[in-house]
Simulated scan of single mutants.
Amino acid sequence: MDEGTQTVAFELRRRIDDLVYRFAKATDPMGRVGFKRSDGDYWIIWHEKLRWIAGAWDDAEVLGRPWDQLAKQSDASPPEGVWVSRKGSKSYVYDLVYVETP
């Protein structure tokens, strides 16, 4: 996706089993903008110190993040590439890929 295009949707594609989670730009009840997963109340949000993370605005727990934390990140959209997550004692590797929306 080129620099002038605003991200409105992306997928997280889990490498181990090809499971795909779809996210779209959304606004929460408090007026905060992030990317909400299509199958539940799971968010990718901009954190002032950590930059893009999977988590919640009001919770200190980070559930996922881009693997390459040294890469430049825009505050407008999460970076494409490798992401890692943690759920309990399990970790997963994903590829974040921008998708076209109608």
Rank of each mutant, 00 (worst) to 15 (best):
Y98W: 14
T5P: 02
F23R: 05
A26S: 15
W46Y: 09
I45E: 11
W52E: 02
A26M: 05
R37P: 05
I44C: 08
W52K: 03
G64I: 00
K36H: 14
G31V: 09
K90G: 09
D18G: 10
T101A: 07
E80P: 03
G55A: 14
D58Q: 05
K36I: 15
R13I: 09
K49I: 12
R37S: 08
E61I: 10
D75L: 02
W52L: 06
Y21M: 15
D41A: 02
G81C: 02
I53A: 01
F10V: 04
W52T: 02
S85G: 05
R51E: 06
D28E: 10
E61N: 08
L70D: 01
I16G: 11
T101Y: 07
G81F: 04
H47Y: 12
T101G: 14
E48M: 06
K87M: 14
A56H: 12
P78K: 01
L12N: 13
K72F: 10
D28F: 08
S77L: 05
R86Y: 02
A54G: 13
I53E: 03
Y92W: 01
A71M: 05
W46R: 11
L50M: 12
V20M: 06
S38C: 13
R86Q: 07
D58H: 05
D59M: 04
I53Q: 03
D17L: 12
K36R: 11
E11F: 10
D58M: 04
S74R: 05
Q69I: 05
K25W: 12
E61K: 13
V97W: 08
M30C: 10
K36M: 11
D41H: 08
T101I: 14
D95A: 05
Q69C: 03
Y21E: 03
D2Q: 09
D17W: 08
F10K: 12
F35K: 01
S89H: 05
D75H: 11
R15W: 03
R51C: 15
T7D: 04
A24H: 08
R65T: 02
P29A: 14
F23E: 06
D58F: 10
W46A: 11
I53Y: 13
A26D: 15
W83T: 01
S91P: 04
A71F: 00
K90Y: 01
G34W: 15
D41I: 09
G64W: 01
D17V: 08
Y42P: 00
L96H: 13
P66K: 00
